[in-house]
């Protein structure tokens, strides 16, 4: 899907846990996620901490969308 969205001309960021699959599939902007069943969360954290963590990941995704890339790039969450 990520590739077809890109092909349609819309910049797209892929947030996923298994980045090697994303690289194989052909995503160009990739942000690593937390875990397969909760890519943007963590049940071990408090609700507030969890949301803070989600903010960081989405913020990284927005940064990826605003960044020029020439090749497949993984943007690590700070």
């Amino acid at each position: 899907m990520v590739k077809e969205i890109e092909r349609a001309g819309i910049p797209v960021v892929h947030i996923c846990t298994i980045t090697p699959i994303s690289l194989t599939v052909g995503a160009n902007r990739i942000v690593p996620a937390v875990a397969i069943p909760y890519p943007l969360g963590d049940p071990a954290l408090s609700k507030d901490e969890e949301k803070q963590q989600r903010r960081k990941i989405v913020k990284t995704a927005l940064k990826a969308l605003s960044t020029e890339v020439s090749d497949q790039t993984v943007f690590d969450v700070e």
Partner: peptide, 8 residues
């Protein structure tokens, strides 16, 4: 203008 795609 942009898409955020999430995968599990």
């Amino acid at each position: 203008q942009a898409v955020i795609l999430t995968s599990t």
